[in-house]
């Protein structure tokens, strides 16, 4: 059998030097198959977002390994063409002084890819934004529109793996539905592999085939979607998340 697309084994991430050390991720392992959509669920401080940052080389890995297609993670431009990320807060992830056009064409410029006009317009169309948005600034866009731009930017280099860090938690419920639908469509069209992080069990359940529940940097349990729907889980923490999710709307 082929190596899993993303394989995390016994990952530890520790912040801070001598004295004050925070162990944000403690011995987490899981693997994501090619074309799969995998979820990480947990509350604030559970270390779920830190794992995504570690994959991107933006958090200090103190032990364990991250492998993509059975090899160590490439860095620099090779990584950029393989893995991209969509951030939680669309108000913070777009440069406030750059137009949508600039945001989308910058990755192309970095990689020396030509044909920018056509690619930018195609990207806008792919995320369901009209052409007239091309020269707007972020402050002229709503939260949902900004997140669409952020998704379009992540797709400019045609990566195969998309890391989604709470992509809808800053959005209104109706906008969340639109963005989740868009992400589903894009995955189906392009055969993308998703690794998605959320605090919302219902969102992960809707989007992912398998998921890992995390608490305080460690794995609580790994579940398949059917197990979650059937209430087939053992950890009391998972039950609390499950019940809270049934009570609240989102």
């Amino acid at each position: 059998m082929a190596a899993p697309r993303v394989e995390i084994s016994d990952l530890h991430v520790t912040f801070g030097q001598r004295g004050r050390r925070v162990r944000a991720v403690r011995g987490v392992s899981f693997s994501v198959a090619a074309g799969e959509s995998y979820g990480l669920v947990g509350e604030s401080g559970s270390g779920k977002s830190t794992i995504l940052r570690a994959i991107c080389g933006m958090a200090p890995v103190s032990a364990g390994s991250i492998r993509i297609d059975g090899r160590p993670v490439p860095r620099g431009r090779a990584f950029a063409r393989l893995v991209q990320m969509v951030f939680q807060d669309p108000y913070a992830s777009l440069h406030p002084r750059h137009t949508v056009d600039r945001v989308l064409s910058e990755p192309l410029a970095i990689h020396g890819i030509g044909d920018r006009d056509r690619r930018v317009l195609a990207a806008l169309a792919a995320v369901g934004l009209p052409r007239s948005f091309r020269f707007r600034f972020p402050h002229q866009l709503s939260g949902g529109q900004r997140q669409r731009v952020a998704i379009a930017r992540a797709l400019m280099l045609e990566p195969e793996i998309l890391l989604l860090d709470e992509p809808t938690s800053a959005l209104d419920a109706s906008v969340q539905a639109e963005v989740l639908n868009l992400l589903q469509e894009l995955r189906a069209e392009r055969g993308l592999t998703y690794l998605m992080v959320s605090h919302d069990l219902a969102v992960i359940d809707h989007m992912c085939d398998r998921l890992t529940v995390m608490e305080n940097g460690a794995v609580v349990e790994e579940l398949r979607r059917e197990q979650l729907a059937a209430g087939d889980f053992r950890a009391p923490y998972t039950r609390r998340l499950f019940e809270a999710s049934l009570e609240a709307g989102g």
């Binding site: 419920a173 989740l180 979650l228 729907a229 059937a230």
Partner: peptide
């Protein structure tokens, strides 16, 4: 428009 645990997998109503 909210997803539910165990709900259908198709597109969410918008």
């Amino acid at each position: 428009c909210l997803p539910r645990i165990g709900g259908p997998r198709g597109p969410l109503p918008v």
